[in-house]
Design a protein around this nucleic acid. Structure first.
Lengths: 202, 202
DNA sequence: TAAAAAATTGCGGGCCCCGCACATTTGCGG
DNA sequence: CCGCAAATGTGCGGGGCCCGCAATTTTTTA
């Protein structure tokens, strides 16, 4: 990867990180595109060269994580499908590598509360879900690749992808709803296990 | 219901129908809020008293259908859970009661093609998914009511709701992707059956 | 090092959405 | 049947988002 692409990726990350941080701190509609651009050190106009909306910039990190699940499922063709899926999901969502990779936030309490407010924002929920749907398509393709299904004609890979993203969303929502009484990893494994086993019996 | 509420419901329906029709005919970004308001016979300002965005107006009919599924699941407490779910879903989505209830479109070919373009619109996909998520919460509540689960603490009702909406979305997407070779009702029953049975085996 | 390709920026404009105040309509009790 | 309170519709104005376009700066390539 040349210097050019690396800089682009950096700007992408800087913008999306700034968008998330400011939104968590102040709330969605108290952050102007201008603020985000300034925090990332680019002009306001440049912001929209990278993201087509403020919401998209915020959802970008979520999209990225979900897409990595698809990639990992593709790579792990050695183990059984559902082991690969569960493993990939846990890797991306369990220890919340996010929090570690970035400048750790001073007040963790305030931060998670801000996140709660953020994900409740209607405008963002739509964009988050859209990110999930985009990733879902990739996961479906990865599954079809592994199982030999036809991505166009067969329902199975799409059902799997949809169920996986549904389980992930449900687990995360539960985690945010209850106060982290149960570790996310357990919620994720539980949810995925129940999906594979079938939901007919409570 | 008084005359007041009935008029409100009428305006709601008129606006959302106009929004859908114009969007299908011309494409999302060639329809201005002004156009929709005019087609519904109200002022542009009034539009935003009913819907907080153009996309929301278009997704409203989808939301309505999904919410009716939740209602019906609540009502049908006589039969087993999954029978109630499948039945409710089929009732709402199978014969596409939509097309019958409204002034039938002249050129059905052109219409479905327009719908295909419409649902591909990024701005709308987010809003559609958001509608699905809203309905999902209601369905989860309905399921919890029936099974005696705790809506806050238990994962099961949320998993069921998520899987159901996922199945519906997947089936509809499949229907739009392939050219109606298989009836929607069959796709829906198939998808739901596979969900309940478990997805572990292709 | 010069030319080509690509990214950033400023400007201008269209549109969306909302708050506010005012007009209009509706429901209700006398 | 009537007038009044409450709810709804409307016009105006503004803030903000997003994009097309063209000029400018930066990076790559020859």
């Amino acid at each position: 990867m040349g210097l050019r692409e690396r800089k682009k990726a950096q700007t992408h990350a800087a913008l999306s990180w700034a968008a998330v941080r400011l939104t968590v701190e102040r709330g969605f509609d108290k952050v102007k595109v201008e603020d985000i651009a300034e925090a990332a050190g680019v002009s306001p106009r440049t912001f929209n060269n990278y993201f087509s909306s403020k919401a998209e910039a915020i959802a970008f990190r979520h999209l990225d994580r979900c897409l990595r699940v698809a990639d990992e499922v593709r790579e792990r063709s050695g183990e059984p499908l559902w082991d690969a899926i569960t493993g990939s999901v846990l890797r991306q969502f369990a220890p919340d590598a996010e929090a570690i990779a970035h400048p750790p936030v001073a007040d963790a309490e305030r931060w998670t509360e801000g996140v709660r407010v953020m994900v409740a924002e209607p405008a963002l929920r739509g964009e988050m879900l859209r990110a999930g749907a985009t990733a879902e398509a990739e996961i479906a393709a990865a599954v079809a690749e592994r199982t030999g299904n036809d991505l166009e004609q067969d329902l199975y890979p799409h059902l799997v992808a949809s169920a996986v993203m549904g389980a992930v969303n449900t687990a995360i929502a539960h985690h945010l709803r209850t106060d982290a009484a149960v570790p996310v990893s357990r919620l994720l494994t539980d949810a995925l296990a129940r999906i594979t086993a079938g939901l007919s019996t409570p």
